[in-house]
């Protein structure tokens, strides 16, 4: 019994310790290779710390809903969300604002990719011949890996769900893994974020003889930095404004290149209304 009391005391002490830290913490959806995320966000943390004058930390998480939960719980104050997770997070946190997106995010794309053995060729219209094959999305709440591809699939096959269109539907978990699973033939067709595809091609991870792009989707808005509504109270008036300015002022290629973005531009919540509508239409949002 005494052990239990001591344990609880120690646990409470740990919480107390956590409360007293006033560091500014941010997270990101784990959409690709983790080493790349750590490289990317450590640089962002250093940059923001220099600009904002508070201690800034990156908290890595393992899943998309964990990123949204950490934001809602106040574990983190800022997050690099996808289009859909951003909508989820702002819906759960009235007052939260989208601050900045990559210049590329205003018109983002999904690539449908296929294993070469399927014989599918690149087409300008939605590749309806992919019906009946095995298909993998990325993470369940990924914008370019699930929400928008599902929307395009439903458009191409009115009245049908992806499960009815394809012989099997899986969720790989992230974009790098979607590429790997389609390349090995574990799944025949997949939907992948075009920027991760480009980064993986550049990194030599894609075997062009085994996997190729069969369709490019129409554009939609995607990734953005979203901040909680209460940061001005905690870090002083005008903090949100300074944060937004700091993000937009990033010019260092060493920070932007790992993102696959040319620069960050201002954005607001309204820019993501199309994603929210699609989320509602596919039944993923209430």
């Amino acid at each position: 019994m005494r052990r239990i009391v001591i344990a609880f005391a120690a646990l409470l002490a740990l919480c107390g310790q956590a409360f007293s830290q006033a560091a500014f913490v941010f997270t990101a959806i784990p959409d690709q290779d983790e080493s790349r995320l750590v490289e990317r966000f450590t640089k962002v943390a250093e940059y923001l710390q220099g600009k904002l004058g508070v201690s800034v930390k990156y908290l890595p998480v393992k899943s998309y809903p964990a990123a949204v939960t950490a934001f809602t719980n106040g574990d983190v104050q800022l997050a690099w969300f996808g289009g859909f997770t951003g909508v989820q997070a702002r819906k759960a946190n009235p007052g939260a604002q989208a601050l900045a997106q990559g210049a590329e995010d205003a018109a983002f794309k999904t690539y449908f990719i296929a294993n070469a053995a399927t014989g599918l060729e690149k087409t300008a219209d939605f590749p309806k011949e992919a019906a009946g094959k095995t298909f993998t999305f990325g993470a369940r709440s990924s914008t370019s890996g699930r929400v928008m591809p599902e929307h395009f699939i439903r458009q191409a096959f009115p009245g049908k769900t992806p499960e009815q269109v394809f012989s099997r539907v899986g969720f790989s978990g992230d974009h790098s893994r979607t590429i790997q699973l389609v390349q090995s033939g574990a799944f025949e067709v997949g939907a992948v974020d075009y920027s991760v595809w480009d980064l993986d091609v550049k990194a030599g991870k894609v075997d062009a003889a085994k996997v190729k792009i069969i369709w490019e989707s129409p554009p939609f808005p995607d990734y953005q930095w979203t901040v909680r509504g209460d940061v001005d109270e905690t870090y002083g008036a005008g903090f949100t404004g300074r944060l937004k300015a700091a993000l937009i002022e990033v010019t260092d290629r060493a920070i932007l290149d790992p993102f696959g973005r040319s620069k960050f531009i201002p954005v607001d919540n309204a820019a993501y209304a199309p994603v929210e509508e699609v989320g509602k239409a596919t039944g993923l949002l209430d």
Partner: peptide
């Protein structure tokens, strides 16, 4: 007992900076 004491000290302190009672309500 030794393992337990060491384990308590070694538990990672991370995150959890949100307010537990308001989280519980939510």
């Amino acid at each position: 007992p030794l393992l337990f004491a060491a384990a308590i000290l070694a538990l990672p302190s991370m995150g959890g900076s949100g307010d537990v009672s308001s989280n519980l309500l939510r």
